[in-house]
């Protein structure tokens, strides 16, 4: 195969909305793979990493962060138009993020507490995922995402194949690794059975229950898991709070937390 000339490399842009930057930093954090990645793609726009800011259109747009302002809405629509493929990364971009906790409250009250001149603040009443506004080609979960999964998605795109990203439970990863189930062996409440794999089952590997950072798995039976939480001694409030974290506004988690709100 002839080596691709630089201009033939796919042009990639990285954009940020309401988020902590942790996910896009995963790309920079992939030290060992970074040179390969940089060799395979043309990073045309990545303000976090480089001053080079080429104009679109782009072959791949990677978006971090949730949509929280009217300006964000306009901006994401423009981005969508300029990107052939749009990939959203992280709990903010795929579920609204931890900031979506405000979705249960009246935002006006917060604005008054936080800002001296609230009249200058223009905000939406909810923090929402990118997919609520534009079509997204692939959503990569996690808070933060797993850098190997990000590279896998880019790799799959470059090689025109399906990414090996699984939507099954964290339990599958625990069992593949040979972890002992923390809920069965110790009675530690764990969101693993309803959470999508991808982190490598980090918390159960260190004797913790899963916090649900990767959001709901493909067919989450949150109600059945909540019933088991009671069996291991969790209160209604515990259950509500367990589902109300980084992926609080992901449909399945949102509904389950609301079911325990009294």
């Amino acid at each position: 195969m002839p080596t691709k000339s630089k201009s033939l490399k796919p042009k990639v842009a990285v954009f940020k909305f309401a988020s902590c930057d942790g996910c896009q930093l995963s790309l920079l954090d992939a030290e060992d793979e970074l040179l390969d990645v940089a060799g395979a793609i043309d990073i045309a726009f990545f303000p976090e990493a480089s001053r080079r800011m080429l104009k679109g259109p782009y072959d791949i747009g990677i978006v971090e962060g949730s949509i929280t302002t009217p300006h964000d809405v306009e901006h994401i629509r423009e981005i969508r138009k300029s990107c052939a493929v749009l990939i959203t990364i992280g709990a903010c971009a795929t579920a609204g993020g931890i900031q979506a906790l405000r979705n249960w409250k009246d935002i006006k009250n917060y604005v008054h507490i936080v800002y001296a001149s609230p009249e200058y603040i223009s905000t939406l009443d909810r923090s929402l995922p990118v997919g609520s506004f534009v079509h997204v080609d692939f959503e990569l979960r996690g808070c933060p995402i797993n850098k190997y999964q990000l590279i896998e998605v880019i790799n799959a795109f470059l090689n025109k194949r399906k990414p090996n990203i699984h939507a099954y439970s964290v339990c599958m990863d625990c069992k593949l690794k040979g972890n002992e189930c923390v809920m069965v062996a110790r009675g530690i409440p764990c969101l693993g059975p309803v959470t999508q794999s991808g982190c490598g089952a980090i918390c159960p590997s260190f004797d913790r229950g899963c916090y649900g950072c990767f959001g709901p798995m493909e067919s989450p039976n949150t109600q059945a898991l909540a019933a088991q939480y009671k069996e291991v001694g969790e209160s209604e409030l515990d259950i509500k709070l367990a589902f109300r974290t980084f992926n609080a506004y992901a449909d399945a988690f949102r509904k389950e937390s609301e079911a325990h709100e009294h």
Binding site: C171, M172, K175, P193, E218
Partner: peptide, 13 residues
């Protein structure tokens, strides 16, 4: 089906 989490643990063990 109401109780099953479809987590896959049973098959793995």
């Amino acid at each position: 089906a109401k109780r099953c989490l479809t987590c896959g643990n049973c098959t793995m063990v």
